Simulated scan of single mutants.
Amino acid sequence: MAGPVPSEATLGFGAVTKQYENNSNNECNACASTYGSVHRVKSMRRRYLVWALLIAVVVGFPYAYGAWERSKVGECTRQIQPAFARPANSSPAYVGEICFLGSSEFGLLFRLYDARGGELIAERLYYDTDVDMVWGSNKVWYSPHEHVSLPPTMWDRFRAKLP
């Protein structure tokens, strides 16, 4: 014989797993298990990457579309928080605004501002034909089925900061 002959089971897996018949069984098993675990890690990374891209598309596309729609604001109507919807002898705390979106026939944008500083503190995009705000002592309805709590939640304040 001219030299050691590679076994059939270990051919084609690269230099790390190429073992010769004259090596002990323990070394061959170690190489095969190393290849298997490396392969599993690469497979898992690929799977996680596919899921991350899928989630990015599913979440990112609707958000980007909503941001594009919010940029097409048309005619707006503002309403200051009425006296019956706030504590006695206090100044208005909120200003509500409903705007038509230029890109959609029924698209509306509700915005809630802090009356003292003019800061945007809540924003909602919705599709409806009602263009009426109804103020309550702890909520403002911008649609028959949708409202913003007064004061707005931290989630509302966070979302209002996003583009």
Rank of each mutant, 00 (worst) to 15 (best):
S137D: 10
L54C: 12
A2L: 14
L54M: 10
K18L: 10
T10N: 13
T129I: 06
N23C: 09
G3H: 09
S33C: 06
I98Q: 04
Q81H: 06
E123P: 07
L53W: 04
G107F: 01
A122W: 02
D128M: 00
S137M: 12
Q79H: 02
G74M: 03
R111I: 06
Y142P: 03
K18W: 05
F106L: 11
A56Q: 07
C28F: 15
T34S: 14
Y20H: 03
S37E: 10
E8P: 05
V41R: 11
F158Y: 15
E97R: 06
G12I: 03
E75I: 03
P92Y: 03
E97A: 07
C28P: 09
T153F: 05
S137I: 13
A56I: 05
R45N: 15
V59S: 14
K72A: 13
W51V: 08
D132E: 14
T34V: 08
G36R: 08
H145D: 12
E75M: 02
R70L: 13
F84I: 08
N29K: 11
E119L: 11
V134R: 12
E146V: 06
T10I: 12
P151K: 04
G3S: 09
V58G: 13
A93G: 10
P152D: 01
I98Y: 04
P144D: 01
R159M: 15
K161T: 14
